[in-house]
């Protein structure tokens, strides 16, 4: 698994107060209770890692995998 993808997963887990293993990469993050401010914090963190999120693309698919692909990265398999 891409190290950046693992980092994203860890960040998302932190925002949701759950463990990384519990994150369902295709679940709608807003349904999980994440709000736009925390997302923005996340996107800024990704930005510093060189992963610029195209916000509108994320909006089309507001899931963890949606974020990943909105950074222009190829799709990742969620299974190891």
């Amino acid at each position: 698994m891409d190290a950046n993808y693992a980092m994203l997963r860890a960040e998302v887990a932190k925002l949701l107060h759950i463990s990384p293993e519990e994150v369902d990469a295709d679940e709608n993050l807003t349904d999980l209770g994440i709000d736009s401010m925390r997302l923005m914090t996340l996107f800024l963190a990704l930005d510093t890692q060189g992963l610029a999120v195209e916000y509108s693309m994320f909006l089309e698919r507001p899931t963890m995998n949606g974020i990943w692909e909105a950074t222009g990265q190829p799709p990742q398999s969620d299974t190891e």
Partner: peptide, 9 residues
């Protein structure tokens, strides 16, 4: 009204 919608873009 765009979150999670194919209209987001």
């Amino acid at each position: 009204g765009r979150m999670g919608s194919i209209a987001a873009r």
